[in-house]
Write a protein that binds this DNA or RNA. Structure first.
Lengths: 330, 330
DNA sequence: CTGTTAGCGCTTTCAG
DNA sequence: CTGAAAGCGCTAACAG
């Protein structure tokens, strides 16, 4: 493994010059730049990012913070998309990534967390699915110790951006499509998720707006994003509803299976666009979020912040889909 | 953020002493040890792992190499288990981990890969699901540039360990159980996976041994680990078989759904123990592998190697299960 | 048992 | 435009 030293010697320049070339700093003649690049090529030189991070006060090392919910496998799908989206994008941009789970920070106070991250030369943070209860994490964000991007939360300030889809509109759209496609949909049963997160706010607004607009009766039950709970709620309230709108695909699947067991049919729709929907038994509309693209965007956004950009609220596109078994298998 | 320097000053000792305490080196009196630990506590000191890695020739930085198959979501479940198992275990042991995907190394020759990893001060490698075709990766392993652990492959030498379950026995067991539970099972249809990996060898041996022992007729078709392919094969050959043994849950699901569509019943069994099995429509036996535990074991094993241990072949336990919808939902 | 010192590979002033 | 030199935070001989 050759070092910047070897390159410098090989090219007949000083190591600081090599460093400048490496980082595309101005003030290096084309001629020396070529010499250096040739040396880099010949020696198969790969810069040591650790050394760079240690030395520099503004390295491109970021941490991904995931709230793994190891109980539910569909979440695996989403988390894996988040992870691979971010890791791939970071790799393209030569950023270093470390992956952390919320569970590792449990019991830790904000200063500890900050210390830990700083000790790793972390300068950027991407936080997936923070909820109101994660107080210490909020403190970390507010400390502005890091350039951070939150996915699925409305936190924005000078050094914090948020990335997500338009929850309200998405919920409105998918429910509307489902309702308009079926006749006699007057009574809506809405299975919502946990309210400590931030996504439910928009989704609830969306379904409320729709129901007002179309003059529908709306019953809201908290399914806690749980398939089991949704199933139970459907057994209990499903008969009286004309359509069941769910705040997650998981719940949609639970609801649909309950309906099938009860041998009655009502249209159901979900939210997320996970592949499991293809196994649900009946097709349903859902909102497809491109999690890996969302995550890639988040990476680009921390880079934006690290380059001095302002925090902002980024709304990404989504689409309505219907996942058929035949389409999803491979 | 305080440094080892601050701690030294605070404790009234030299930084090397602090370092010794940090790394549990021998030759430090209890007294000074206490002083140092107290200082560490008071300053909320967290050692900078980057600096340690840079300085030391044997840091505990490892890379996880995953062969993401982004087409199939059940793989997401397995990969996520692998990842979280390894990352959590590494965190406990204060090891740094970076995550890489095979796709990032495509087109790269072994020396490049080695260079890249060395530049990151990587000393350990965990490789998940390598196949015979990954020549460059094999070259990396053989170079012994890193202490590596392969999951699901039989590669073992001085600095390489392998971690997996007993593929042959597992396949034998699950098929036997399925066959013995049903009467008149004489004709076995075995849907195998791609043969460029290493896991199929053992599994094929297992099913062959069983068929010889019980004097059953065995037809093997290559389902390529594909649900779609398994479905097609079942449509084609399913009628003539008494039982369908599959080398993956995915294929088992495809096979089962095909049978249901054809409205005939034959017992089917799978391999892996993914939750999706709960959605299959009918219950099947399968081999449950505890992927996150396997992965945690792999982390422990690289540590073993990094501490000078010899490479070895580690066989982990598995169990036979039957995943019911009611049991897996939550 | 403790402290001094020379790096690890790179960035970043600051002179020239 | 280029180079010398001082660190970044830590480890590891080596003296004492």
């Amino acid at each position: 493994m050759s070092s910047i030293h070897d390159v410098a010697k090989h090219a007949g320049v000083a190591i600081s010059t090599v460093s400048k070339v490496l980082n595309h700093y101005p003030g290096v003649s084309e001629e020396t730049k070529d010499k250096v690049n040739k040396a880099i090529e010949e020696l198969q030189f790969v810069p040591n990012t650790l050394a760079a991070a240690l030395s520099s006060k503004q390295s491109a090392r970021i941490a991904l913070l995931l709230n793994l919910n190891s109980q539910t496998q569909a979440i695996d799908e989403i988390d894996m998309q988040y992870l691979s989206g971010a890791i791939n994008e970071a790799r393209k941009r030569n950023m270093d990534v470390i992956t952390l789970f919320f569970s590792m920070l449990k019991e830790k106070k904000a200063p500890e967390i900050i210390n830990y991250l700083k000790a790793q030369s972390i300068h950027g943070l991407i936080i997936y699915g923070i909820s109101r209860e994660d107080e210490q994490l909020h403190a970390v964000i507010e400390s502005e110790a890091f350039k951070t991007v939150v996915v699925d939360s409305p936190i924005v300030n000078r050094s914090v951006s948020s990335v997500w889809i338009d929850q309200e509109q998405a919920q409105y759209d998918v429910a509307k499509k489902t309702i308009l496609e079926n006749e006699n949909c007057h009574k809506i049963l809405y299975l919502s998720g946990k309210e400590n997160g931030y996504i439910m706010e928009g989704r609830l607004k969306g379904i409320r707006r729709l129901c007002e607009e179309l003059d529908l009766s709306l019953t809201i039950k908290n399914g806690e994003f749980s398939e089991k709970k949704a199933r139970e709620l459907t057994f209990r309230y499903g008969k009286d509803a004309d359509v069941i709108v769910c705040a997650s695909d998981f719940m949609a699947i639970g609801a649909m299976r309950a309906l099938i067991e009860m041998d009655i049919f009502h249209p159901v729709c979900g939210f997320d666009g996970i592949r499991l929907m293809g196994y649900a038994g009946k097709q349903m509309h859902t909102v497809r979020q491109n999690f890996s693209e969302i995550s890639a965007q988040a990476v680009r956004e921390v880079q934006h912040l690290m380059e001095g950009g302002q925090g902002r609220n980024l709304i990404l596109p989504h689409e309505l889909v219907r996942l058929k078994y035949e389409d999803i298998i491979c």
